[in-house]
Design a protein around this nucleic acid. Structure first.
Length: 290
DNA sequence: CTCCGGATAC
DNA sequence: GTATCCGGAG
């Protein structure tokens, strides 16, 4: 159906793919899992250094599981969404307990791990184990919407529909299917970007349905926009977490007060961090939860 | 009562 | 991206 598009895309990927730490030949299922956790909602440039450091310190699930979760959260640094660090630690523990220390290759087994959802489970199955399963992230969605369907790309995501769409693009050959998944994401990340697509440099421009249709704008239900970060509870939580990581001793709420002017919002942020199991409050104050 | 798709919140 | 909540669907 779209064999020319797909073949061209794969050829481009094999020539032009970025050299990223988690794509090296020495990668393991564990390193793939770690990178995918870090890449959830976080840009490549920010993940790379943290990934290297993490793998140096915890080269296996067992190594991570042997340490308290608080160490994982501390090492997570400023990557954001720190609950991912706890999930990754929890996943490592489960891998040790239930899978003999080996990352499972089965999508369903992966889905059972904390912090592993539809995207990550399939990404690990495909990129770590070479399974022929569709992998769909936001980049894939955009590329398919444009190049295949000829639409602008403000449509709300639909996991069911997008997985089916990707499935249809995958060739029978397992190895090539893996490349198609990776290449589609890569194109969306570096060429077919959301705001300013570089169509003049696109390797599959001649096969692009969006281009041949004259780049029509998307008409239909608009996707909701993400809340601004500045001043948000998310920002305040991030500030509190930074303080707790830096302090290797319990910190009182009073000591945290200077970190944020709005006292009520600060209290709320602290409360939610405790509720989320990221921070723990004892008699001496707050600390990273173990 | 399980299975979505939508809406949030991080 | 993932988890969680929630109302409608089967």
């Amino acid at each position: 159906m779209h064999s020319d598009l797909v073949a061209t895309l794969v050829r481009w990927y094999e020539e032009e793919a970025r050299e990223l730490p988690w794509r090296r030949a020495d990668r393991t299922p564990w390193s793939v899992l770690v990178s995918e956790f870090m890449l959830q909602q976080t840009q490549v440039s920010r993940v790379a250094p943290a990934f290297e450091e993490w793998m140096r310190r915890w080269p296996t699930p067992a190594a991570l599981a042997a340490e308290p979760a608080s160490e994982a959260v501390r090492a997570w640094g400023g990557l954001g969404y720190p609950r991912r660090a706890r999930w990754l630690h929890g996943a490592a523990a489960r891998i040790v307990e239930e899978h003999g220390g080996e990352v499972p290759s089965d999508v369903d087994a992966l889905l059972a791990l904390p912090g592993v959802g539809p995207y990550t489970a399939r990404a690990v199955a495909a990129f770590a184990f070479g399974s022929r399963v569709p992998v769909v992230d936001t980049n894939t969605r955009r590329v398919i919407a444009r190049a295949v369907d000829g639409n602008g790309d403000a449509a709300p995501p639909s996991t069911r529909r997008d997985l089916a769409a990707m499935e249809r693009l995958l060739p029978a050959d397992t190895r090539v299917a893996q490349l198609v998944n990776a290449a589609t994401m890569e194109l969306g990340a570096v060429v077919c970007t959301a705001r300013a697509p570089r169509c003049e440099a696109c390797p599959v421009a001649v096969h692009c349905a969006w281009r041949s249709a004259g780049y029509p704008a998307y008409e239909g239900p608009r996707r909701r926009v993400q809340a601004t970060f500045a001043g948000s509870d998310r920002q305040v939580r991030g500030i509190v977490m930074r303080e707790l990581r830096a302090a290797h001793r319990p910190v009182t709420r009073g000591e945290l007060a200077p970190a944020w002017a709005d006292a009520a919002q600060l209290e709320r942020a602290i409360d939610t961090l405790v509720a989320d199991g990221l921070a723990a409050e004892g008699a001496e104050g707050l600390a990273l939860a173990e």
